[in-house]
Amino acid sequence: MRADSPMAPPRSFLWSRRIFLTLLTGFVLLPVYVMVSSSLKPLADVTGKFRWLPSGLTIRPYIDIWSTVPLARYFVNSLVVAGAATVCSVVIAVFSAYAVSRYDFRGKRVFTVTVLSTQMFPGILFLLPLFLLYVNIGNATGIALFGSRGGLILTYLTFSLPFSIWMLIGYFDSVPRDLDEAALVDGCGPLGALFRIVVPAAIPGIVAVAVYAFMTAWGEVLFASVMTNDTTRTLAVGLQGYSTLNDVYWNQIMAASLVVSVPVVAGFLLLQRYLVAGLTAGAVK
């Protein structure tokens, strides 16, 4: 590829690259440094003037975060909600993308266009209607959607569906049709062909979609702030609990931010290779 380019880049290019990437790294890392260093500072360091270096290191904030607010409960809620939303979203997206990629049927174009256009809806437009809908469904059927994790799971999995379906369609299209047609001839049903041939060949795309779905659910604030109560509150809302108290424990806020970030950032960085591969094959055509 580019690396084999027969001409070495000129000095102007190398210097621009060095300067640009250095500045950018500083910009990117500054908040990360603030987050990590402040989370290890004693309270006095974060209430007075900002200090680049802590006056002393302490892990106290990491112990206190769990008792200042019920962080563990929020954590579990976020894990359950984001985990379930991811699994459901991926399974549903796989079915839909397979249908669109492998079959010709009436309304296919309408389906893809409608699903994609939901991406442009301002969340605020259906926040209140969805809230009313969930309350009414609850009153009519007894299924508690409002205030429950179930309602949140349903909401979040739908949020990540359009992009997931779109990306998987592209990915499935790149899996040669001969493969699953051969499987059909060999006596697999359509679902057998899907799960034995197409899904294994599209693993990078599926992983990418799962990462995306998990991040969407883990980071959403607007609906979480309206649709949860004390027992079902997720991290997105719960983390703001540290700032509404009389004292702002910035060292604890930073520690908690770091703790809630680790699962997603670690997962993301481990799987980013797949994400780039998935985007290359799927979304970017």
Partner: peptide, 15 residues
């Protein structure tokens, strides 16, 4: 470079 994108919005913005 992908860290800002991977961080949950609220954790990043609160920082």
């Amino acid at each position: 470079f992908l860290v800002p994108y991977a961080l949950p919005v609220y954790a990043a913005v609160i920082t």
